[in-house]
């Protein structure tokens, strides 16, 4: 069996329109802006996690069966499929597993000051277990995978019980340590 030179699929259909056609009212369209709000009850694991953040501490849950210390905490272990057993205090220091320097916001609009973001595996949790958060007080040519970092907390009066009670993670050593 050999292919011929015909373009396949043959004569695909569909009509391209651009933003200009829309803003220029060249095509008929309708517009809708949904208004909806959500209120999430956070459950025992996340409620305790956020209450502890408000106090300036990070907690995880231990599964005695697989011996993992889970951060973010959950009331059941998805591997062993059993309830987790106890609360464990986790350090607010850790290691950068990966990172990105973002020049776009959540709507994909360009921003001037880049956002440093990444995953931090936290000391006291199981290896590779951690959270996503911002980095600060670090330069683009300093940040690297394996860098040791520490949480910078909001002042206690500003904390609301949210992941953003941590402002960002900063390098443990000034200048970021060895790359």
């Amino acid at each position: 069996m050999t292919g011929n030179d015909e373009m396949v699929p043959k004569d695909p259909r569909g009509t391209h329109v651009g933003n200009k056609d829309i803003y220029g009212r060249k095509i008929t369209y309708s517009w809708w802006e949904p208004e909806v709000q959500y209120n999430w009850a956070l459950g025992p694991a996340m409620s305790r996690f956020l209450e502890e953040l408000k106090k300036g501490s990070i907690v995880g849950r231990k599964c005695r069966k697989c011996r993992r210390i889970l951060v973010p905490p959950r009331m059941f272990c998805e591997r062993c499929y059993n309830p987790t057993d106890e609360w464990v205090k986790i350090e607010d220091t850790g290691t950068i597993e990966t990172f990105s320097i973002s020049y776009i916001d959540s709507d994909a609009r360009k921003i001037k000051d880049p956002i440093f973001i990444g995953v931090i595996s936290l000391d006291g949790a199981s290896p590779k277990h951690g959270i996503m958060h911002y980095f600060g007080e670090v330069k683009a040519d300093e940040i690297h995978i394996g860098m040791r970092v520490k949480a910078v907390w909001k002042h206690v009066s500003e904390r609301t019980g949210a992941i953003t009670d941590i402002k960002y993670f900063k390098p443990l050593k000034k200048g970021g340590g060895k790359k």
Binding site: W40, T98, S102, D105, H133
Partner: peptide, 18 residues
Amino acid sequence: PILDRPLNPNLVWLFAME
């Protein structure tokens, strides 16, 4: 909604980190 959204993420971040 609890851990990630307050950080105003863009999906491209996931790919960038991976």
